[in-house]
């Protein structure tokens, strides 16, 4: 690998500059620039066709960019894709493994492609599949297959791992299980790049999240940072026995999108709030002044879904 500049530990693990990928007249990726720091779990979110897979394939050395540069672990990926491949781990969406080999044999085979390799049994132990070492892929459940595909991305003890929709199609229990495994991978020292279209997955797992839409990276921050960037990040619901004076409710500073309606439970005020504490105080004061009992008060923080909607004008799932 002579001639390949090695990064120092403080350098970003990924540095992408103006990546563009065109297929004929179609622009699949339209110029994102970003950096990923060492030890991060970096999430890439977006609907199908947003350019997530294209972006990740360029970083993995599977597809060359039409324009722009990307440095992965200090190596220019366009110039040295094989050198990058040797140091990263890849879990691909829908990628399966040889149906006639056992789990142990698949890990041995994939390990043989790399100069540095982990012990197959140790890897299987990490995802609690050691008792299935001599089973073939087709005998595994969906969750087991996903767990295996994650561990198969770790055969070369990579410094950077890409997980492409690792929990797609899994039930909630299996998803929680997989999140824990992804955290353990990071805790063991690897940087993780994860694509997903589950908002709650990004919120629960990622240190930073990038939103992709129509080939562009439209937002990038920590999940909390993104939510805070919303004009009104909180959702407030107040249920009272008697109606509140609507003009007063609308006049509360920081209250937006106020709606009052009558339901079977009582009178419900729904609104979005720029700050939770002051708006909540103002609402309860108003109820006290109106002499009505508060039946229920709920304050929900904003979600990444809200952020996606505000940034792109469309919902992520649906």
């Amino acid at each position: 690998m002579s001639g390949i500049a090695r990064a120092s530990t403080s350098d970003p693990v990924i540095a992408a500059r103006g990546l563009i990928k065109r297929y004929g007249t179609l622009t699949a990726l339209d110029g994102p620039s970003f950096e990923v720091a060492s030890g991060e779990i970096f999430g890439i979110l977006g609907p199908n066709g947003a350019g997530k897979t294209t972006l990740v394939e360029i970083l993995e050395g599977l597809t060359p960019a039409t324009e722009g540069t990307a440095s992965v672990l200090g190596i220019e990926v366009t110039e040295h894709p094989q050198a990058v491949k040797a140091r990263i781990g890849v879990q691909l969406q829908a990628a399966s493994y040889h149906q006639y080999l056992t789990l142990r044999e698949i890990l041995q085979l994939f390990g043989s492609f790399y100069p540095k390799r982990a012990d197959p049994m140790e890897l299987l132990h990490r995802v609690r599949l050691e008792d299935r070492a001599d089973s073939r892929m087709r005998t595994l459940s969906g969750g087991m297959k996903q767990r295996f595909s994650i561990v198969a991305a770790l055969v070369n003890e990579p410094d950077l791992v890409f997980f492409d929709e690792p929990t797609a199609g899994l039930d909630p229990d299996a998803r929680l299980d997989l999140w824990q495994i992804v955290r353990e991978v990071r805790d063991a020292g690897a940087t993780v790049v994860l694509t997903t279209h589950y908002m709650e997955e990004a919120e629960a797992l990622c240190d930073r999240v990038a939103f992709m839409n129509a080939g562009q990276m439209v937002a990038l921050d920590t999940p909390q940072g993104l939510i805070r960037s919303l004009n009104a990040p909180y959702r407030l619901t107040l249920t009272t026995a008697h109606p509140l004076p609507e003009a007063d409710v609308r006049g509360i500073p920081g209250a937006l999108e106020v709606v009052q309606e009558r339901t079977a439970d009582g009178f419900v005020v729904r609104m979005r709030a720029q700050t939770a504490p002051s708006v909540t105080t103002a609402l309860t004061t108003l109820a006290g002044r109106a002499g009505t009992d508060i039946i229920d008060l709920a304050v929900e923080p904003g979600t990444l879904e809200d952020v996606f909607l505000s940034v792109t004008g469309r919902r992520l799932n649906g």
């Binding site: 599977l62 491949k85 691909l92 399966s96 493994y97 492609f113």
Partner: peptide, 18 residues
């Protein structure tokens, strides 16, 4: 063709194996 359809080839392509 099975390797291609089941994604095995794509997975192998993501490794440094020439």
């Amino acid at each position: 063709s099975r390797y291609r359809e089941e994604g095995v080839l794509r997975r192998i392509r993501a490794t440094p194996l020439p």
